[in-house]
């Protein structure tokens, strides 16, 4: 009987502490960066005086998540506080952005924004608009490329598009689910090539597209450049063109579509925002901290090692870029017949 009682007490303690672990594990795990930055306390308004929350709409451990956490950790150091990261996933990010936009506009909730916020808005499936956020910064850009299997008969973008024009809807193009960023990029390319049509084979994500290209299950694929270097160097995949304004550092010998006469540059990006109506002073503090963190050579090195394409835009430039990009998202989705 005595033993049993002892066991009961132990079990109760165990289950209580488990509750704490389950609900409190994320803050606990992510605290460390805070201590080291305590000395650089910000001036002016008393912000931030407590840990801040960052809402990441993609699942923990993925590319966007790792990028946001890396940037967030360094920004938190500058702010002398820490970020509590929350992955609120689902509905192509709409659920998390909805939660973030409706959080108090006090600077204690920061949203990780990605290109998909524009797609969601254009599709009209969610009430959340990119204008619902006051922008802080953009910190990466992900140019996309057109890839083919290593032994593909198509040596240039021209040849690929000519074939897609000659036999419309026969060449298989690997993308992520239709309507998304990769499909939009390809749609723009079709329009620029004036009559070319691919047959789309949607995959869950980049990993599956790479596998399909290496295994020759598609004729071509649209894909961000991140992580492609080895496959290209190894010869299992070839890159035909980059859909960006400038050539990439990773593939300096590969032409941009623009150089080849197709006016397509489609840029995916990652950045941060806070709910609309956040006080100016608070936004300034956040902007300064994120900029300082971005300029930190240690961050730059870590981010480059992690394969991130760093690109900085401050809040004003970021806003201008989105104002320009959004109508294009709408028009390409119209062309692809997703919206009227």
């Amino acid at each position: 009987m005595k033993n049993l009682k002892k066991a009961l007490v132990i079990i109760l303690i165990f289950s209580l502490s488990l509750g704490l672990v389950a609900c409190g594990s994320q803050p606990a795990q992510n605290n460390p960066p805070a201590q080291s930055g305590q000395s650089t306390a910000p001036a002016a308004p008393a912000y931030p005086t407590k840990p801040m929350e960052m809402i990441i709409v993609w699942s923990a451990g993925g590319g966007s998540d790792l990028a946001a956490r890396l940037m967030g950790d360094y920004a938190a150091k500058e702010l002398g506080q820490s970020f509590v990261y929350q992955n609120v996933t689902g509905a192509n990010g709409a659920i998390g952005w909805d939660q973030a936009a409706n959080s108090p506009a006090d600077g204690y909730t920061v949203a990780n924004l990605t290109f998909d916020v524009l797609t969601n808005q254009a599709m009209g499936q969610t009430p959340i608009k990119y204008e619902d956020f006051d922008l802080i910064m953009q910190f990466t850009t992900q140019p996309v490329g057109v890839f083919v299997p290593g032994d593909s008969p198509y040596q240039t973008l021209d040849e690929l598009l000519a074939a897609a024009k000659e036999k419309p809807e026969t060449l298989q193009m690997g993308t992520t689910p239709l309507g998304g960023f990769f499909h939009q990029a390809s749609g723009l390319l079709e329009a620029a090539a004036d009559g070319a049509k691919f047959k789309y084979l949607p995959f869950k994500g980049s990993a599956e597209i790479i596998a399909a290209l290496s295994g020759k299950h598609v004729d071509a694929g649209i894909q961000t450049l991140t992580g492609m270097e080895q496959h290209v160097e190894n010869g299992s995949i070839r890159v035909l063109a980059i859909l960006a304004n400038e050539r990439s550092k990773m593939f300096p010998d590969t032409p941009t579509a623009k150089e080849l006469g197709y006016d397509v540059a489609w840029e995916s990006w990652r950045g941060f925002g806070v709910p609309k109506g956040t006080p100016e002073e608070v936004k300034t503090i956040l902007e300064d901290a994120f900029k300082k963190a971005y300029d930190n050579p240690e961050f730059q090195q870590k981010a480059t090692e992690a394969g991130l394409d760093l690109y900085y835009r401050g809040s004003a430039d970021f806003k201008t870029m989105l104002d320009e990009q959004y109508p294009n998202v709408e028009s390409v989705l119209r062309q692809l017949e997703f919206i009227k």
Binding site: G61, G62, G63, D65, L66, L70, G227, E229, Q230, H231, E233, N234, S236, K302, E305, A306, G307
Partner: peptide, 14 residues
Amino acid sequence: GAMMIQGIQPGPLL
């Protein structure tokens, strides 16, 4: 993701 953060790129050349 963790390996890439460490600067190790898994792939055919690893």
